[in-house]
């Protein structure tokens, strides 16, 4: 038996909007740690890892570890029927073939049950090793979204380079080239507006902008985004989900042949 009650139901709505265009079907795993998901896009270029810790739920009951295969498009359709202020409860029976989403209005005068069919999904779980990253950039998520959107009007690939000078986002296309440089800036009124560049070693990597733009669907979840880069590894683009967890996107680099 599984019963997870999330007072801030809008978080789950935003989480689905952040992953449904990248991944069609995925297994949600439920354990005493929390509600999690790991899935790759169909071409295995990007991987998304979601964790919503059990402590973040008002009520968290998960008697046995449970893996529930869901079509994310269908799940998104159902969650769109929840109001932004609604409390969302996820319910499922061990071995059952459905999951129920219950939406309660804040004043408790409207209660809705949406039951969704589960599916069998054959997914491979990858081990993500802990890594020391060469450079880590934290910036306002809206700024990162703007940069990815702007550069994708010029080119298909972004080169992200971190040096002593700052972090540079570059692209090139048929009509010309673009370079956007951000410098560290911590003298801001609000900490979420800061640009923090932690450079252990300079790094320069190329990535497909199509995927970066897809990751920025998570912008409504968090004021800040963290980009971790190492020359030997996929980039990690991380958005915190309130105090309860994170969405991490891993994107494999483009490599010169």
């Amino acid at each position: 038996m599984l019963e997870l009650r999330l007072v801030q139901g809008s978080l789950l709505k935003k989480v689905l909007e952040s992953i449904k265009d990248l991944v069609n079907d995925a297994n949600f795993d439920c354990s005493s740690t929390g509600f999690s998901l790991q899935a790759m896009d169909s071409s295995h270029v990007a991987l998304v890892s979601l964790l919503l810790r059990s402590e973040g739920f008002e009520h968290y009951r998960c008697d046995r570890n449970l893996s529930m295969g869901m079509n994310l498009g269908n799940m998104s359709k159902m969650l769109k029927c929840a109001g932004n202020d609604d409390i969302i409860t996820i319910k499922a029976d061990d071995g059952g073939d459905t999951v129920t989403f219950m939406f309660e209005s804040p004043t408790q005068d409207k209660i809705a049950d949406f039951e969704m069919k589960l599916m069998d999904i054959d997914s491979e779980h990858l081990g993500i090793p802990d890594a020391e990253y060469h450079s880590i950039v934290r910036m306002p998520s809206s700024e990162f979204q703007r940069i990815c959107k702007d550069l994708s009007t010029i080119g298909d690939t972004v080169v992200i380079s971190v040096t002593k000078e700052g972090v540079k986002f570059s692209t090139a296309g048929d009509i010309g080239t673009a370079n956007i440089v951000l410098r560290q800036n911590t003298t801001v009124d609000k900490p979420e507006d800061a640009i923090v560049i932690e450079m252990n070693e300079p790094v320069s990597l190329s990535f497909a902008l199509r995927y970066m733009n897809s990751f920025t669907k998570a912008t409504p979840l968090s004021d800040t985004v963290t980009i971790s880069l190492s020359s030997e590894l996929p980039v990690v683009v991380e958005y915190k989900v309130a105090e309860m967890g994170y969405i991490r996107y891993y994107l494999a680099p483009k490599i010169e042949e």
Binding site: V45, I128, P129, E232, Y250, A252
Partner: peptide, 14 residues
């Protein structure tokens, strides 16, 4: 131009 690599090149099956 550069070639797109895949995640499975970097991360192994758990």
């Amino acid at each position: 131009g550069p070639r797109q690599s895949t995640i499975t090149k970097f991360f192994d099956k758990a």
